[in-house]
């Protein structure tokens, strides 16, 4: 059992980010031929701060969720920690290494999974990609067989491995992606939207697998996700990043009350002119669809009232998207705050 971050006098941190900053140079050009010619001579370049002075530590065995709207700097932070991007300023340290040096002994202990891109080769069966992985990571055959058997038991890969990856469904492919990423038994996992686009069943499957893997191996996991459910199921601790700055670092429950005070009710009224304002705050009105925000506890009752009193085609109760909530809570330049349980 891995020691958790609330253990007294925890061991040395696995991941350290200290004043981590990343600037992107974005070249700008006005439209038009004259501007194009001018830009040949003098390109106007603007510096964008994708990540701005982010500092945190993660202990062994922790699962930490990164929250923040699109473009907040989550992925850039992960990429700096994995060694794909050099920090412009500040320092990253993972397992005692500077990630950007990409030393083989460092790379052998980490892995990166992204829901958007595939590391498996499209045209060959996943088993062949695994075999290449084994060669590159120099995994001894006996150990490889054991790991593969374990992963198979947990993810039920058997029937998938022989098919060309392009013939797999997204959920099946993601299982293979996750398995490929874990073949070398990494100690640190960087997961960037690992459940993106998956159906609910597949999401739950991946989630419970990751939790299980963390329990069994004590691996440290850093995770970004669009889905609140991912974070709620896996992470006790969350880090909120917005406009490249760290806004919150602490226990999920300390944030949850603030983060999720509302539920969203989406109504498709049969009569497009129906007035739903009495039931809650109307946040969006699309043709044939009205979105309401209601207090969390009241949501079931309000939905029942709508069903009883308004002619509707459909009603659904949803968690507000993380993006919206984070944007809403931390917008308007509110000062960064720290929750309870913040690491010293």
């Amino acid at each position: 059992m891995a020691s958790r971050r609330d253990a007294p006098a925890g061991p040395a941190p696995v991941v350290v980010a200290s004043g981590l900053t990343r600037l992107y140079a974005v070249s700008e050009r006005e439209a038009g031929l004259a501007a194009a010619l001018r830009s040949v001579l003098r390109r106007s370049v603007r510096q964008v701060r994708a990540v701005d002075g982010v500092t945190f530590e993660v202990g062994p065995g922790e699962i930490v969720g990164f929250l923040g709207p699109n473009g907040a700097g989550k992925t850039t932070t992960l990429k700096m920690l994995a060694g794909l991007l050099h920090p412009t300023e500040g320092r990253a340290e993972v397992l005692g290494h500077a990630p950007a040096e990409r030393r083989p002994e460092f790379l052998r202990q980490i892995t990166l999974v992204t829901g958007q891109r595939s590391q498996l080769q499209w045209d060959i069966p996943a088993a062949d990609s695994f075999e290449l992985h084994r060669a590159v990571y120099r995994i001894p055959p006996a150990r490889y067989r054991r790991i593969l058997a374990d992963l198979d038991a947990m993810l039920d890969l058997g029937p998938l491995l022989g098919k060309p990856v392009r013939n797999l469904s997204l959920g099946e492919r993601m299982k293979c992606e996750v398995a490929a990423a874990l073949l070398h038994e990494p100690r640190v996992l960087f997961l960037d939207e690992p459940t993106l686009g998956l159906d609910v069943v597949a999401q739950r499957r991946i989630r419970s697998f990751l939790a299980d893997y963390n329990r069994r191996t004590g691996a440290t996991i850093l995770l970004t996700s669009h889905y609140m459910a991912d974070v709620q199921a896996l992470c006790r601790r969350v880090i909120v990043i917005h406009h490249g700055r760290l806004l919150f670092d602490g226990l999920l429950e300390a944030l949850a009350g603030r983060l999720l005070p509302h539920k969203v009710i989406v109504v498709q009224p049969s009569d497009p002119a129906a007035d739903l304002r009495p039931y809650g705050e109307v946040t969006e009105r699309a043709p044939g669809e009205v979105t309401l925000r209601v207090p969390r506890a009241a949501a079931p009752a309000v939905a029942a009232r709508i069903l009883a009193e308004v002619a509707v085609d459909d009603v659904s109760i949803l968690d507000p998207p993380i993006e919206d909530v984070v944007e809403q809570i931390f917008s308007a330049g509110r000062a960064p705050e720290s929750g309870a349980g913040l690491r010293p």
Binding site: K79, A82, G83, L84, R102, P104, E105, F106, L107, R108, I110, T111, L112, T114, R117, S118, Q119, V136, Y137
Partner: peptide, 18 residues
């Protein structure tokens, strides 16, 4: 172009060789 090179760079072998 697609960004998939990320995975290659994270593998523990000389990237040029790989």
């Amino acid at each position: 172009r697609t960004g998939a090179l990320d995975f290659t760079l994270l593998q523990p072998a000389d990237s040029q060789v790989l």
